[in-house]
Design a protein around this nucleic acid. Structure first.
Lengths: 244, 244
DNA sequence: CGTGGCCTTGAAGAATCTCAAATAATGTGG
DNA sequence: CCACATTATTTGAGATTCTTCAAGGCCACG
């Protein structure tokens, strides 16, 4: 029962609150202004609703305006693996450029809103002014950043134990929340234990046990999805890879 | 004892053997021709030598002309994790765009040769003709493909057991070799058990044991680094994720 | 022919998973 | 507003997979 999206007024990148983390990030003002010409449409997505599915034709990248998303990959046998959580200012759907179809699915973990960025227009804009290398570089950088983000994920999955993975996950969340003006030490998880587990390559029971272990070590206070980090540096120690 | 690189004559993309898999891949001829203007320099890299290191300033992307490379990520404690193996036509160094420094290191597993692609020139070329959206799209697609490639790695590391990982690795290798005109079923591994293990998130002993297990199951014949796949579809079954 | 690197194999140990059950939180329909 | 079904989370105990430690073999190379 998808509810038709209302169509709010177009959005200007140059005056957007998220411009420092979003698409315009790192671009000079002169490069940012042309982005306003895109006349980005917004779209609301309710909790649990899907923004796009793996296999869908790729036409838009999406920038999170508010709320939280998860993206997941489909495995051959139908199961899924969470490949990322996305908060305001972060871009989603970059994997669709590769072959014109989305390679992952994205759905909202809470009521959310996105900007839909038409890829074709962006491509045009990046060359149209016959010298907008700032925008071209910015786009490349965004894609490259996604590669780097996945690098750390690979390291996590390939070389870390359960405690290191969860600590790394929480510290990363904390960092991104701070960048958005929220508390570094106290926050509400938008995702379930199962989703965290899928993301970290662990079973949900292991995630739950590791939360309990951190609590016993007085690193965290955990009340369901409410987290309070009581010992950040201790957590950072847990995150540092142990030498075996 | 690095040996100074000879400087062979510049290379033309439009007439290159690798053009169908490399940078020009998927571009029309009209988009490919301008690439020749880059006047790409080649560089020889001997077995074991490093092409670039994590932290080095990023100026070039590299296309493999011949030979095989591995790239690896540095962990906080100094250890490394292999993040990819690269063969002819494949691009390396894309993670450096993100912040102007290489995020991984690359070294040759056998004597090799690369084309060095100056990023700045490429950026210029992508807009200079005031309408070269084909090239812009091609660059984005290359970056996006790298994202998709890392997706499958993440699935492998997050959801597969040792047999599935090794089977998936061998089948992927086989596929890429076929695309280059080599045998699908018989090939020589350029990397050690330890390097395979690092890539697959396994210890070298586990890799070795899994090779032995495949041999006992009559899926492979293994003689050190020489591999003969005797039952491709059996291997594909092992690769398909088991439903537990 | 000895040395070092790489690979294989065994046995014991550790980490994580599976299965199971209890509890808490949430939503539903009456 | 309550009874009930459903979902999320925690925790325990045993099974499984992978790792660790250790030893030995093979091969290339000086």
């Amino acid at each position: 029962m998808p509810i038709p999206d209302p169509a709010p007024s177009p959005t200007q990148c140059s005056s957007c609150q998220q411009r420092h983390v979003c698409l315009p990030s790192g671009m000079g003002v002169s490069d940012t202004l042309p982005l306003d010409k895109l006349g980005l449409k917004r779209r609301r997505v309710q909790t649990g609703q899907t923004l796009y599915r793996a296999g869908d034709e790729f036409h838009f990248m999406y920038a999170v305006r508010s709320g939280t998303f998860k993206s997941d990959l489909q495995l051959a046998d139908g199961r899924t693996q969470v490949s990322g959580f996305h908060m305001s200012g972060e871009l989603m759907g970059l994997d669709g450029i590769a072959d014109g179809r989305h390679a992952s699915s994205s759905s909202a973990l809470e009521d959310a809103e996105v900007c839909a960025i038409p890829y074709a227009s962006l491509l045009e804009l990046a060359g149209g002014s016959c010298g907008n290398s700032g925008l071209r570089h910015a786009i490349n950088r965004l894609l490259s950043r996604e590669i780097v983000r996945e690098h750390s994920l690979m390291v996590m999955l390939g070389s870390m134990n359960a405690e290191e993975r969860l600590a790394s996950f929480l510290l990363n969340l904390s960092q991104r929340l701070v960048a958005r003006g929220y508390s570094a030490s106290e926050f509400h998880l938008r995702m379930s234990r199962a989703e965290i587990g899928s993301y970290l390559g662990l079973k949900l029971e292991t995630v739950s046990r590791t939360f309990s272990a951190f609590q016993q070590q007085r690193l965290l206070e955990v009340d369901k999805r409410h987290i309070r980090i009581t010992d950040i540096s201790g957590l950072q120690r847990a995150f540092e890879l142990q030498v075996h």
